[in-house]
């Protein structure tokens, strides 16, 4: 198909698919941030069982393949009488996995602060709360801008899992496979989707490095 044929026939669907991908990405990323922060708090708190739980969560979800998790959610959970819609399944998978990575990034942000600063803060007589608010969290957040940018891009790539279940409207990957199974979409059909993905990634990357330049701590 030529590009004009493709656009006249599927143009609207491409826009819809782009919006679906964006929506999935935004929702998953927001969820991943919330869960990631909760898990990180668990991992740094002095309560042993919570630490272990947090570590276990991260090890499981940073190592499980997206397809494997999605298949468990879609096909296996109904056997436990937990029935989620396809959209909910995809959203759960694309939230749980980035959440683990989010926690890993935050932890390495905290580790990057260094023990010396913590000890210095304490020897100045700061309470735990003050130290967290004035020393740990501001730096950890600044350190994590670039990793979070990468996480957002990775989340967008993960949302392509949506193509593995019947969804309406489809995401960018799902739409391409739909076009090419019933039609001869050709290279162009793939190129349109990939440019949309890449464009989004580039925009996210630009915004991320802009913010990073503003807040970076130069040492």
């Amino acid at each position: 198909m030529t590009i004009s044929e493709l656009l006249s026939q599927y143009g609207e669907k491409y826009i819809q698919a782009l919006l679906t991908t964006w929506q999935l990405t935004a929702l998953s990323f927001a969820g991943a941030l919330v869960i990631g922060i909760i898990i990180t708090v668990m991992r740094v708190c002095p309560i042993k069982p919570l630490r272990i739980f947090g570590d276990l969560y991260v090890q499981i979800f940073r190592n499980i393949p997206g397809a494997s998790l999605l298949i468990v959610l879609v096909y296996a959970l109904p056997n436990l009488n937990i029935i989620l819609s396809y959209y909910q399944c995809v959203l759960t998978a694309t939230t749980m996995i980035p959440a683990a990575f989010c926690s890993e990034y935050l932890m390495s942000g905290i580790d990057a602060i260094g023990i010396g600063q913590i000890e210095a803060a304490r020897s100045l007589g700061m309470t735990f709360g003050t130290m967290m608010r004035k020393v740990v969290i501001p730096q950890a957040v600044r350190f994590s801008v670039l990793p979070m940018t990468n996480l957002l891009i990775a989340t967008m790539l993960t949302t392509s899992l949506a193509s593995q279940v019947p969804l309406n409207p489809k995401d960018l990957t799902g739409l391409v496979s739909y076009i090419n199974t019933r039609d001869v979409g050709g290279v162009t059909s793939f190129l349109i989707s990939s440019i949309m993905y890449c464009g989004t990634a580039v925009i996210i990357g630009q915004i991320g490095s802009f913010i990073d330049k503003k807040v970076r701590i130069i040492r």
């Binding site: 790539l157 990957t173 391409v176 890449c198």
Partner: peptide
């Protein structure tokens, strides 16, 4: 380009096209 495009899209390219 390869970093900004999901693996599944490449797989479908090699599978369908």
């Amino acid at each position: 380009f390869t970093r900004g495009v999901p693996t599944l899209l490449f797989i479908y390219f090699f599978f369908l096209y």
